Simulated scan of single mutants.
Amino acid sequence: MKVLCLHGQNQNGHIFKNEIESILLNYQNSGVDLDFEFLDAPLRCTDGAVNGTPLYQYYEGLDIPKLRKAHHWLSGKLNENGPYDGVIAFSQGATLVSSYILYHQWYNHESPLSFRFAMLIGGSIPLPVLKDLGVPVTKEAEQVVEEANSQRHQALGPLPAHSSKARRALFNSDDCFGLNLNRVPLELKIRIPTIHVWGRQDPLLPVSIHLAGLCDPYIRKIFIHEGAHEVPKTEDNKMEVGKLLQWGLQRAVWPGHDEV
């Protein structure tokens, strides 16, 4: 089995491997033939390095042509090295994967994806992507995202108003932080098994909830840890994420997968 691992913005494959290696360790020592492949994003960041190691990003800003160029890069990697059983992605990597899935389902729905499940840690689906695909986006949803980004840029936690609304938003298809998910076409709901992981102290939790709301709830798992915008760090949380990864790997070989 092969799993593609995609890091976040201002990271690289080596950093991401170090962050999740203890989660993967049980699988690597289990005797199961598993290959976790870590890539570096295509664009080198200009704001420095870590211990002399370059940092990378998939795209800069939320300009749709730049994002689509990143999709083209990902598609090339999937065609070259895939197919994969799954993808594990963090932050910008998770946003790349989720938006790639939506465009693929909309424009290339006759072709199967090159992976069968996705674990999305601190992921999002940018509102410009939804707009580009014809999904109605309200001013309220835009305001929520603007507030969340402002909190992140100030290195603050989530707004109390966002935290208090989080659970209701996750299960309210009419008002998921301003998005009416009932008005989103089925073709723009992610229909492969997904695992969503985010921190209770992550200021960007509303955008992670937007993404989770766009995924099929019958083949979706959610884990909320006590940290911020990060890969879970405590041993208990890593164990829970490991169990969810096992669920995803099982779904990757599930006989009914191709009928989902």
Results as ranks from 00 to 15, higher is better:
M1Y: 02
K2H: 10
K2V: 11
L4R: 08
L4Q: 08
H7M: 11
G8V: 09
G8D: 13
Q9D: 09
Q11G: 04
I15N: 03
K17M: 12
N18G: 06
N18K: 13
I20K: 04
E21G: 10
I23P: 06
Q28I: 13
N29H: 08
N29Y: 03
V32H: 11
L34G: 01
F36V: 09
L39D: 01
D40K: 01
C45I: 02
N51A: 14
N51C: 10
T53F: 05
P54M: 08
Y56Q: 02
G61W: 08
G61Y: 05
L62V: 07
D63S: 15
D63L: 09
P65R: 02
K66A: 15
A70S: 15
H71A: 06
H72L: 14
W73T: 08
S75F: 04
G76M: 04
K77E: 15
E80C: 07
N81W: 12
G82E: 10
Y84A: 10
D85Y: 01
D85L: 01
G86Q: 06
G86E: 08
I88P: 11
A94I: 02
T95D: 03
H104F: 06
W106H: 14
N108H: 15
N108F: 15
N108I: 01
S111W: 02
S114F: 08
F117P: 03
M119H: 04
L120Q: 03
G122V: 05
I125D: 01
P126Q: 01
L127R: 04
L127G: 02
L127E: 01
L127F: 03
L130T: 04
T138D: 04
K139P: 00
V145Y: 03
E146D: 13
E147K: 08
N149Q: 12
N149R: 13
R152P: 00
A155P: 00
G157C: 09
P158K: 12
P158H: 12
P158Q: 09
P160T: 12
P160F: 12
A166D: 11
R167P: 00
R167H: 11
L170A: 15
S173A: 10
S173G: 13
L179W: 06
N180W: 08
L181S: 10
V184H: 06
L186Y: 08
E187S: 15
L188R: 13
I192P: 06
I192E: 08
W198C: 09
W198L: 12
P203D: 11
P203Y: 12
L205V: 02
V207D: 05
H210P: 06
L211C: 11
Y218F: 14
K221H: 07
I222M: 08
G227F: 07
A228M: 08
A228F: 05
A228P: 00
H229C: 02
E230W: 00
V231A: 03
D236A: 14
M239G: 02
E240A: 12
V241P: 08
K243S: 12
K243M: 12
L244G: 01
L245G: 00
W247R: 05
L249T: 10
R251E: 13
A252T: 05
W254G: 00
G256Y: 10
H257F: 15
D258C: 03
